[in-house]
Design a protein around this nucleic acid. Structure first.
Lengths: 237, 237
DNA sequence: CTTCATTTTCGAACATGTTCAAAACATACG
DNA sequence: CGTATGTTTTGAACATGTTCGAAAATGAAG
């Protein structure tokens, strides 16, 4: 509005074929980027839509033209964090073929990616927990980001040499991902310096998993375990 | 306001020594009861403070004089549900001394007590999840209701004949209670008819627990298990 | 009964997420 | 160019949780 109104230096006229909506996409991106920057800086609660609109030099209603709710803006952040996580994890995953080690890599890089948001965790958690929120990782609206995340665990399992029964191996990535959500929940509540408790929980959990996984082949345990795993793997908001 | 303005039939004059604040306590109870009735009927989101105030024949500001936030009103509901749960469970607990059976009783009566609220679970969940909310079961403000709940699991463990190491037995009630919170989380997301999936998860979990508990005495598992249990038992908002 | 301090009650106000009707703009067509 | 159609943008409005200053009720002291 106050800024360049198309008179700019940009070779606009040189591209007469620019598809309709290019301007709209720029506005959308502007709002999105402004919002993400504010979420990173101020967290969820202190990022109001009026503030976003103002910082983006746009009216309040205009923000709502592009994003139906505040949570849809947070979803953009969620997607971005997801991509960061994947980049950090895939790099390290190349160096190991032990299932538990590989899981440890995915969990630890995940926590590291979340760390800058720890101070704001309560706000984001509240926004994300409702089964009705588009932000909910289990919700339909988050399917894309979820596939990315589950994919990471699928990679972790697929790239490991293990001797788990097939049916189990198929459901496990979903379950490991859910475990990750629970770990993140624990992390959100963790007030220990450096999130030391969360890291200890993770270490201990992985160690126990390493000890327990071979037991999954015992005939006595296998049946009930499989049922549980499948039940849990199917949680959806 | 429209109602009896003290001219009533009540033997007010007959009790000159009625301690100061008796009227206040009645107002408080009126607001509280009106709110709880509305929560039960309409759930969290559709129960607005203006509505409560109106139904109670009281001004909006007055409600805030007695309850600092809406969530403090929900806390009253939480306490009531807690008491219901305890009543239902203690009765049945008398009939068994098997640890897993006893746990099953506590979990199942808990779910049954929650059931009338299932339709409103998302609203209440959202209000309760934030580590900063007084409603959060892990929060300082909920200490009383929490002690009641953990006490139930303490009873379940104490009244059972088992051969668990002492240190473990001490931490277990807290952990079982946390597991209950997670079960409630699963329940809140459960869209299956009659919450069939939640019940199956519970059954399966209990069966697995029955199989796994004896393993807790294996020297190899005992150490890391204890660490985890203690870590988890200490979660607080 | 009057006076004064305390407790209780009220109603207006505020910030925020969200909705909506209308204005401004862009584009295609005659 | 001028008009019609669709897209973008705006600003006002609404409901809700919450805050606050002032009025009313209450009760103790003189």
């Amino acid at each position: 509005m106050f800024e360049n109104e198309g008179v700019g230096i940009e070779p606009e006229a040189a591209e007469p074929k620019r598809r309709a909506g290019a301007k709209a996409e720029r506005t959308r991106a502007l709002i999105r980027d402004t919002a993400l920057a504010s979420f990173r800086e101020r967290g969820y609660d202190d990022t109001t839509l009026r503030l976003i609109a103002q910082e983006a030099g746009v009216s309040l209603g205009n923000a709502y033209y592009y994003f139906p709710t505040k949570n849809h803006l947070v979803q953009e952040l969620y997607a971005e964090v997801q991509r960061e996580h994947r980049a950090a994890a895939t790099e390290l995953l190349a160096g190991s073929d032990e299932l538990v080690d590989r899981l440890g890599i995915v969990y630890r890089t995940g926590l590291a990616t979340l760390e800058p948001f720890h101070a704001f965790a309560p706000g984001f958690l509240t926004a994300a927990i409702s089964p009705r929120s588009p932000l909910n990782p289990l919700a339909e609206d988050s399917a894309e980001a979820r596939e990315l995340a589950v994919g990471l665990f699928r990679d972790a399992v697929a790239g490991a040499r293990h001797s788990l029964p097939d049916d189990l191996a198929r459901s496990l990535p979903e379950v490991f991902w859910l475990a990750y959500l629970l770990l993140a929940l624990f992390w959100a509540y963790d007030r220990s310096p450096g999130r030391e408790r969360t890291l200890r929980l993770l270490d201990g959990g992985l160690r126990l998993l390493g000890l327990a996984l071979p037991l999954a082949r015992l005939p006595l345990l296998r049946r009930p375990l499989r049922e549980l795993v499948e039940l849990v793997a199917a949680v959806r908001a």
